[in-house]
Simulated assay, not measured.
Amino acid sequence: MPRLEEHVDISAPSDAVWEHLHKVEEYPQFVDGVREARRESSARVHMDVDTRGRAKGIDCSTEDIGSQETMAWKTTSTPHLSGSFSVTPLDAEHTRVKARVEYDPAEALDAFGGPKGFAQSNAIERTVREDLHHFKEMVEREHR
């Protein structure tokens, strides 16, 4: 499965960044294609995602690893996606967030459409990078 890793540095304390990662109801504000998101239990999240102009429900399991360090996630059905968000304090007021995403290219194409092959990888990488930057902007706006 292809794996992609991206990171962004955020001007906010790590505990504030960690808290925002767990506010799944905020995901539509920074994750492209997410119409609605809600936590269904401490380890389950449901998201309604825009796929080819239609809403598709996607359920994910989540797990915190370490104290405010890593949140691992994976979908519980197709498309099979998994990954993590790692939070690393750079100093008292700056934090690095690293996103890791693993995906099956054929399932991603079936579920979301878009280009094939190398162009698909580039599109997914660009989307993850843009989502991270939207997350950075949202967190920094609230912590000025």
Rank of each mutant, 00 (worst) to 15 (best):
M1T: 06
M1H: 08
P2H: 03
E5R: 14
E6N: 10
E6H: 11
D9M: 07
A12S: 11
P13M: 00
D15L: 07
D15H: 13
D15N: 10
A16N: 12
V17D: 02
V17Q: 00
W18G: 00
E19L: 11
L21C: 08
E25P: 06
Q29F: 05
D32C: 14
G33Q: 09
R35C: 10
R38P: 04
S41Y: 01
S41R: 01
S41E: 02
A43E: 13
H46L: 14
D50M: 15
T51A: 15
R52Q: 09
G53C: 11
A55D: 12
D64M: 08
S67L: 04
A72V: 01
K74H: 15
S77T: 08
T78F: 11
H80W: 09
H80Y: 08
S84Q: 00
T95D: 07
R96G: 08
V97G: 04
V97E: 05
K98A: 12
R100F: 04
Y103H: 08
E107Y: 01
A108S: 13
D110M: 15
D110N: 14
G113M: 11
G114P: 03
G114I: 08
K116P: 14
G117E: 07
A119S: 09
A119Y: 05
R126H: 14
T127K: 14
R129P: 03
E130N: 15
H133Q: 08
F135H: 00
K136C: 02
M138G: 00
V139D: 03
E142M: 01
H143T: 13
R144W: 08
